[in-house]
């Protein structure tokens, strides 16, 4: 083996070992890298009970109820299988909309209501002009009405 080839083999071997190590570490940290839990995960008891965590999902359409006095808001976060009621006092981000993604940080009460201290909007990766979105919504509505006559 020429010295150059030996060096190449050593570097390649070292990199492979590092990659394996990194994969193992990432796998071990997987549980800590969870930014939010879905309502289904919470229903299955995967979320921590004694400390604050985040819940993520869609804001159920028609579920947002604003308290007439003050900034308190109630809404339901759903992943279409399970859902969870969230109570929050404070200002909401611009992209907080019914039917859109949301991530709320807070604690789960004994009554099953999630008391949030921070609400963040999670938007999707679709970008389109308003008229295109309008057309898309119309098309989806038309399709729905065809499926359920």
């Amino acid at each position: 083996m020429k010295p150059r080839h030996k060096r190449l083999a050593l570097i390649g071997g070292g990199l492979a070992a590092l990659a394996v190590a990194a994969a193992l570490v990432l796998n071990a940290f997987q549980s800590n890298l969870v930014f939010f839990f879905s309502p289904s995960q919470i229903a299955a008891g995967e979320a921590p009970r004694d400390r604050a965590f985040r819940v993520g999902g869609l804001v159920q359409a028609g579920s947002v109820k604003r308290n007439p006095e003050g900034l308190t808001v109630n809404f339901v976060v759903t992943d279409t299988a399970k859902d969870i009621t969230v109570v929050y006092t404070g200002s909401l981000p611009d992209l907080f909309r019914e039917g859109k993604g949301v991530v709320a940080q807070g604690k789960l009460g004994a009554d099953g209501v999630f008391r949030a201290t921070e609400v963040l909007a999670k938007h999707d990766e679709n970008y389109m002009p308003p008229d295109a979105q309008h057309a898309l919504e119309q098309a989806q509505k038309a399709q729905k009405s065809l499926r359920t006559p």
Partner: peptide
């Protein structure tokens, strides 16, 4: 791989981009 606040990719090799053409 993980639940993130950041949205997924708009442009990828495996499917059509989820953006208007001029954007």
């Amino acid at each position: 791989w993980w639940n993130t606040l950041h949205q997924g990719a708009s442009v990828s090799l495996t499917r059509a981009p989820s953006m208007a053409a001029t954007m």
